[in-house]
Design a protein around this nucleic acid. Sequence first.
DNA 1: AGCTCAACCTGGCTGC
DNA 2: TGCAGCCAGGTTGAGC
Length: 277
Amino acid sequence: MPELPEVEVSRLGLAPHLVGQKLSACVARRADLRLPIPQDLHTRLVGHALTAIARRGKYLLFHWQTAGGWLIVHLGMSGSLRLVPPETPAGAHEHFDLCFPDTVMRLKDPRRFGVVLWQEGDDPNAHPLLAHLGMEPLSPEFTADWLTALVRGGKSGRKTPIKPLLMDARLLVGVGNIYAAESLFRAGISPLAPADSLHAARLAKLTTAIRETLLEAIKAGGSSVRDYVHSDGGAGSFQLQCAVYDRAGLPCLQCGTPIRQVRQAGRSSFYCPRCQR
DNA sequence: AGCTCAACCTGGCTGC
DNA sequence: TGCAGCCAGGTTGAGC
């Protein structure tokens, strides 16, 4: 589930309940997810108050100022976080807890592609997994000029299809398979279009489309933030209507042409062959 | 340098 | 009903 909007919605839902609270326990029910879970988190963090929850790309960053570092959480493909009452028994695939006096933040991740890490010091971006991350699409620096320079970059421009380029976290963070597809539809650009074949005006449109798609998804999730964080069902509560993603063979909402599905860089892409060129 | 692909896991759906 | 096969919202490192 988790692309940038889902991570941001989680952050918005968790922060009011957790920031300022003192940690009473930290529980890891297994030694690793995609990577090992640091074993000394309990010792490091118990008794310290959570200072803030930030986000970089799809990473959630829990700042512990008095403990002198950051707890880094990535939800992978199947991860979700929710708040449960203390003493709630952990169910299947619920691998990690941050326990506070009044509530427990519980990480569930069936596929275990997620990550729980510790970064010492003031700068979470010093962590090797964060150090090479690209542009934040919701930052003011994400502009048509930036994207144009990116696709024109290198010796001869980037020939790669635009969709895998958008999903390359070293270039641009937070845009996964769903939002790449939806943004390209909104911009009227085929996912197959070679990146450097797109003129500035179309890239400007794409920049806007990406920002708007992400913001609308956050807003849609935001209206149900409490449900998301508190519900047992968890991740299902996002209301965003997809125009193309997972709609292979169904009529385009704009022109009625059947939505086409192709494979790019090992991932499914969905697009309208008439609306997107 | 730039791009594609396999691998990491489990669960859910489809089709025989 | 059972089971094999395939697919899934991410990321990394290897290989071409």
